[in-house]
Design a protein around this nucleic acid. Structure first.
Length: 870
RNA sequence: GCCCGGAUGGCGGAAUAGGUAGACGCAAGGGACUUAAAAUCCCUCGGUGGUAACACCGUGCCGGUUCGAUUCCGGCUCCGGGCACCA
C-alpha cells in the first residue's frame, strides 16, 4: 500500500480489474432476486455534462448498494441518438448527423467508463441504428393496423422564409431563430398515437405507483386532467348565420348555463371562417390569430382578444340569442374549438366581458352577499355553499342540484349530454425532419396509407445526408421516397416524415433486457425476468412527457403480448439540476457577454461575503448574474472531465453525492471538490498507518473499556444511519456525513493496544463498506489493504450490532415554557418520575421558575422535559 | 396564464412521527509545525448586548393552532421545473 493516495493508479487498477473480470455483465439467474437499476440514457450531445455525472453516479450508487444486498443487478446504458441538435451541428459544420452522433457516442462512452460506473456494456443500445428502430417501425405498423395510430391534421410553426417547420424551441418572440421571419401556424397531416384511449388507465394506475414521488403523480394527474361536465348544443340563429346547424361546446360547468351571455370560437372554427367571408375586420383578426407560435405558454400569456362575428346562436334553455365571438384564447383542436362564456363565474370570461362590455349575469349567490365587480373572484372560485339565482326554474339549487337538473333538461331536448372529458390530447409524432426514425408508411393513390410489410422492414434512414435548414431533406430525395405500393404494385410515395424522438425513449428500457434479439422487438421471457424497472433515475424535467409516454408505451407493448406488467417503472427518483454562478458584462448593443466561472476571480469582504468579481485575464470587474442551470448560453458549465482528470472519479462522485440530496438542485463549488478530495486522503492516510503497523487480531467484543465502547458505538451508529439514509431514503449526503463523523472518531481513537487496533480495523472496514457504492475505486484498494481477498463488489452490506448502541446514561434537555434552560444526565433506566424530579432540581430551571407556579410538566422519553410555569 | 416544487449562517446543507435550529463539509480568522511553501494538526466561527456567566433575537413575509412550530393550518412574496416539435 503506497503512502500517498494515488488516485490515478488506484482507479486504473480497479477499472481494469472489473473489465477483466466482466464484473458487471449480468445474465438471468433463476432463484436470485433481480434489481433493474436504470438511469435515463443520454442524448449524445458531445461530451458529458454535470447533470449526466450526477444522474449516473446516483444510479451507480444505488446499483452497487443493491448488489451488496445480494441482488442480481442489471445496470445498462445506451444512447438517445436521434434528435435536432445533430441536424443543427450538421448545418454548422457540414458534417452528416450520423457521423457527428457516432463520434460523440465514442467520446462520451470513454468518459462514462472513466467514472467507474458498474454498467453492463454488452447491452448497449443506440436508437439511431436500424437494429433498434426497425422494431419501432414494426410496432408502428401493428398499431396502425389496429387503429391505435391514425392520421389527421395538426398545427405546426411555419417559417415562411426558410420554408420549414420549426420546433417551439426554435421560435423566439414569435420569429424563426435562423431567418428572423414572423412565424405562422400551419395545418399539416400528421400521424397520432391514440393515447387518449388509455387516459383512464394512465390515470388510475398512478395509484399503483407507490414508489413514485407524489409531486410527479400529481403533475401527471393534472396533465391527464379528467373532468366531469357536459356537451351543450346551441342551435344556429338562421337569420344571422344563414344556414341551419348546431354549435357544440363542452363545459365543466353546465350548472352555470343560465349565466352564459356569449359564446367564443377559435379562429379556425367553421363559423368563424363563414363569418369572415364578408367581414374584412374579422378576416384580419383571424389572420392575426394565425401568427405566432403554437406553444401553449405563448397562447396563454398573450392578451385575450376577440371580435364579434355578427352571428348568434340560440340558448338551449332560454331561447335567447347569444352573440358569437372569435377569440384568440380558444384553441382549435382542443375539445370542440368553441366555449360558452359565463362571465360571472369564470375569471377569463369575466375579463373578456368587461373588455368588450358584454352582459354579466350572476347565477350563484351566498347568503348575505351581493355581487359586485370588486368581489367577482369569490363567485367563480368557489362552488360550495352557494345557491343559484337568476336561473328561472333552476333557482335555489346547489352545484349538484343545478348540474343535474340542467343536464337532464338538455338531454331531454337533445341539446346536450353528460360527458367525462380528458385534457390529455392524442400524441402527434410526425416530424418534418431528417435525423429521426422513418415512419413506415407508403402512400398509394389507389390503396391510401399502406404500412410497410414486415419483410420490408426496416425502412433505413440514409446516413450520409447533410441537411440545409430548408424543409425536410428526405422529401427532396427520390431515391428514398420513390417506391411501389406493397398492395397493388403501382408506383407510390414513401412517407418522408420521421418520428418524434420521444418514441425511441419510450421503450428502450425494455430493449435492454434482450438488446440483440432478432426475432422480435423484445424477448418476452427476458423482459418479464427484469421488468418492471426497480429504480428509474432522471431529471425532474421529464416528470410529464417522457414518463407519461413511456407508461403509455408499456401498456401498448402489454396489449401486444410483449410484457406482462402494467407499469414500466416501480420506483422513480427525480434528480435536481446542477447549477452554477453566472458572470457577464453588458455589451454596447445591450446584449450580454457571459464568462465562465473558471475564468473569473471572486472578491470577498472580511466576513467572506461575496462583494464582486473580476475577470482573471484583464482584472476588470464583471457583473454577477446569479446561479442558473449550467448551460452553453450562460457559459457557466463546468467540464466534469477536468475535475475527473485533476481529482479522480471517486472524488468527483463523492462531491456530487455529498453536496446536496439527489432531488435538490446542486450548486457547483470548486472548493467543495477540494474538500471531498481531502476527506479521501484522510481515509487513505489512516488506513495506511493502520495497515503498515500490521493487521491486528480479532476484536474481543466482551472486554471493551468505556472509551472503546464509545468508538464501537460510533461505528455502529454510522452503519445504522447510513443504511437507512442510502437504502430507504436515498439521502447520500447525510450518509456521507455519518461516515465523516465516524472518521473524526477513528482518527482520535487510541491505538495503544491490540484491542484498540482491532477496533480501528472494524472502523476502517466499516468506512470502506459504507463508501463502497459511492467511491468504489478507493474501496477496492482499501479492502485488500485491510487484508481481504474477496471481491468488495459482492461483500454484504454491514449489519448493525444493536448491543454496541446501548448507552448507560442519557443526556436530556430541560425546557421552561418551551425554551432551552439546561441539560441533565440520567441513567438510561430512569423512570418518568425520576427524570421529572431531576429536572425540577436543575439550578437554571429553579432560577427561571422562581416565583412562578408549575402548571404542567411534559416528559418526552429519551429527549426532553418541558416545565410549563406561569 | 395554468400545473408542480423550493426558500434555514458568509456558502452547500442537517434536523426522515410537532420536541436541543445550524449535524457534516466549504470558506474565513487565529495559532502550531516548516528556512519557506504545500500538506497536516489545534482553536474560533448565526446576530445583538455583556469581561464573563449568560440574556434576548433568529429557519423568505404576515397571521393562526400548540406546553413547544424549520416541521401543521390560512394568506402572500420571490426563485426554479413543465406546458404537448429541446431532450
Amino acid at each position: 500500500m503506497h503512502e500517498q493516495y494515488q488516485f490515478r493508479e488506484i482507479e486504473a487498477a480497479a477499472q481494469s480489474h472489473w473489465e477483466h473480470q466482466q464484473s458487471f455483465v449480468v445474465r438471468e439467474q433463476a432463484g436470485k432476486d433481480t434489481f433493474y437499476c436504470l438511469s435515463m440514457f443520454p442524448y449524445p450531445s458531445g461530451k458529458l455534462h454535470m447533470g449526466h455525472v450526477r444522474n449516473y453516479t446516483i444510479g451507480d450508487v444505488i446499483a452497487r448498494y443493491q448488489r451488496m444486498q445480494g441482488k442480481n443487478v442489471l445496470q445498462p446504458m445506451g444512447w438517445d441518438a436521434f434528435g435536432m441538435p445533430a441536424e443543427n451541428a450538421a448545418m454548422k459544420n457540414q458534417v452528416a448527423p450520423a457521423k457527428w452522433t457516432y463520434e460523440n457516442i465514442a467520446y462520451m462512452k470513454a468518459q462514462l467508463k472513466s467514472l467507474g460506473l458498474g454498467i453492463d456494456w454488452t447491452r448497449e443500445v443506440t436508437t439511431c441504428k436500424p437494429d433498434y428502430y426497425r422494431w419501432e417501425q414494426w410496432l408502428f405498423t401493428k398499431l396502425f393496423e389496429k387503429g391505435v395510430i391514425y392520421r389527421k391534421n395538426g398545427t405546426v410553426n411555419w417559417d415562411p422564409v426558410d420554408q420549414t417547420v420549426l420546433a417551439n424551441e426554435q421560435v423566439i418572440d414569435g420569429r424563426g431563430w435562423r431567418s428572423g421571419a414572423l412565424i405562422e401556424k400551419r395545418e399539416i397531416p400528421m400521424y397520432y398515437f391514440r393515447i387518449t384511449a388509455y387516459a383512464e388507465e394512465l390515470l388510475s394506475s398512478l395509484d399503483e405507483l407507490t414508489g413514485w414521488p407524489e409531486q410527479v403523480k400529481t403533475m401527471q394527474r393534472n396533465w391527464i386532467g379528467k373532468s366531469f361536465g357536459a356537451d351543450i348544443v346551441f342551435d344556429y340563429d338562421q337569420a344571422s348565420i344563414g344556414i341551419e346547424g348546431q354549435l357544440r361546446v363542452y363545459s365543466t360547468r353546465p350548472d352555470t348555463l343560465m349565466g352564459a351571455t356569449y359564446v367564443a370560437v377559435a379562429a379556425e372554427h367553421p363559423l368563424a371562417q363563414r363569418a369572415a367571408e364578408h367581414n374584412a375586420e374579422l378576416a384580419a383578426f383571424i389572420a392575426e390569430c394565425k401568427s405566432g407560435s403554437v406553444a401553449e405558454a405563448d397562447m396563454a400569456t398573450m392578451e385575450k382578444k376577440g371580435v364579434p362575428t355578427g352571428q348568434f346562436v340560440i340558448h338551449p334553455l332560454t331561447g335567447d340569442k347569444l352573440p358569437v365571438f372569435v377569440a384568440n384564447y380558444v384553441l382549435w383542436g382542443y375539445g370542440e374549438g368553441a366555449v360558452m362564456a359565463v362571465p360571472a363565474h369564470d375569471e377569463r370570461d369575466f375579463a373578456f366581458a368587461n373588455k368588450y362590455s358584454l352582459p354579466i349575469t350572476q347565477v350563484y349567490a351566498a347568503e348575505g352577499k351581493d355581487f359586485s365587480a370588486s368581489e367577482w373572484q369569490e363567485w367563480y372560485a368557489d362552488k360550495s355553499g352557494l345557491t343559484t339565482l337568476n336561473s328561472g326554474k333552476y333557482n335555489g339549487l346547489d352545484f349538484t342540484g343545478a348540474f343535474d337538473a340542467i343536464v337532464a333538461d338538455l338531454e331531454a331536448s337533445n341539446h346536450g349530454a353528460r360527458k367525462t372529458q380528458f385534457r390529455l390530447r392524442d400524441w402527434g409524432i410526425s416530424r418534418q425532419r431528417y435525423w429521426g426514425c422513418p415512419i413506415p408508411i407508403i402512400h398509394c393513390d389507389s390503396c391510401g396509407d399502406v404500412p410497410v410489410p414486415e419483410d420490408q422492414l426496416p425502412v433505413v434512414l440514409p446516413e450520409d445526408v447533410v441537411p440545409d435548414g430548408s424543409g425536410s431533406p428526405l422529401a427532396k430525395m427520390p431515391e428514398f421516397y420513390s417506391c411501389t405500393c406493397p398492395k397493388c404494385g403501382q408506383p407510390a410515395k414513401r412517407e418522408t416524415d420521421t418520428m418524434d424522438t420521444f418514441v425511441e425513449s419510450s421503450w428502450y428500457y425494455a430493449r435492454y433486457a434482450s438488446p440483440q434479439y432478432t426475432q422480435g422487438m423484445i424477448d418476452p421471457a427476458a423482459a418479464n425476468h427484469w421488468l418492471p424497472v426497480d429504480q428509474y433515475i432522471g431529471g425532474i424535467e421529464h416528470a410529464i412527457l417522457h414518463l407519461l409516454y413511456a407508461r403509455f408505451f408499456h401498456k401498448l407493448m402489454r396489449d401486444e403480448g410483449l410484457v406482462s406488467s402494467n407499469e414500466p417503472f416501480k420506483n422513480l427518483l427525480t434528480q435536481g439540476m446542477v447549477v452554477a454562478e453566472t458572470y457577464y458584462r453588458t455589451l454596447e448593443n445591450g446584449g450580454k457577454d457571459w464568462f465562465n466561472p473558471a475564468d473569473v476571480e471572486v472578491e470577498r469582504d472580511a466576513k467572506a461575503k461575496v462583494i464582486g468579481a473580476k475577470l482573471k485575464s484583464d482584472g476588470l470587474p464583471v457583473e454577477i448574474g446569479g446561479t442558473e442551470k449550467m448551460s452553453k448560453s450562460k457559459n457557466n458549465g463546468v467540464d466534469p472531465q477536468a475535475m475527473i482528470d485533476q481529482y479522480g472519479a471517486d472524488t468527483c462522485r463523492l462531491f456530487m453525492m455529498f453536496a446536496a440530496p439527489p432531488e435538490m438542485s446542486l450548486e457547483w463549488s470548486d472548493a467543495g471538490v477540494e474538500g471531498a478530495s481531502r476527506f479521501l486522503r484522510r481515509v487513505w492516510r489512516l488506513a495506511h498507518s493502520h495497515a503498515s503497523a500490521g493487521l491486528p487480531a480479532a476484536l474481543d467484543k466482551a472486554s471493551l473499556n468505556d472509551e472503546q465502547k464509545a468508538v464501537r458505538r460510533a461505528i455502529h451508529l454510522a452503519i445504522k444511519q447510513a443504511s437507512t439514509d442510502i437504502g430507504q431514503y436515498h439521502k447520500f449526503n447525510t450518509a456521507i456525513a455519518q461516515v465523516m463523523t465516524l472518521m473524526n472518531v477513528l482518527e482520535k481513537a487510541s491505538t495503544a493496544t491490540e484491542q484498540d487496533r482491532a477496533l480501528i480495523q472494524e472502523g476502517l472496514e466499516t468506512v470502506t463498506l459504507l463508501l463502497a457504492p459511492i467511491t468504489p475505486h478507493i474501496g477496492h484498494a482499501l479492502w485488500s489493504a485491510l487484508g481481504h481477498t474477496d471481491e468488495l463488489l459482492d461483500v454484504s452490506w454491514p449489519a448493525v450490532d444493536e448491543s454496541a448502541l446501548v448507552q448507560d446514561s442519557l443526556t436530556l434537555v430541560i425546557q421552561v415554557n418551551g425554551k432551552l434552560r439546561g441539560e441533565i444526565q440520567v441513567p438510561a433506566t430512569a423512570s418518568r418520575e425520576e427524570v421529572e424530579a431531576a429536572a425540577r432540581q436543575n439550578e437554571n430551571v429553579l432560577r427561571f421558575i422562581d416565583g412562578l407556579t408549575i402548571r404542567k410538566v411534559i416528559v418526552v422519553p429519551g429527549k426532553l422535559v418541558n416545565i410549563v410555569a406561569g
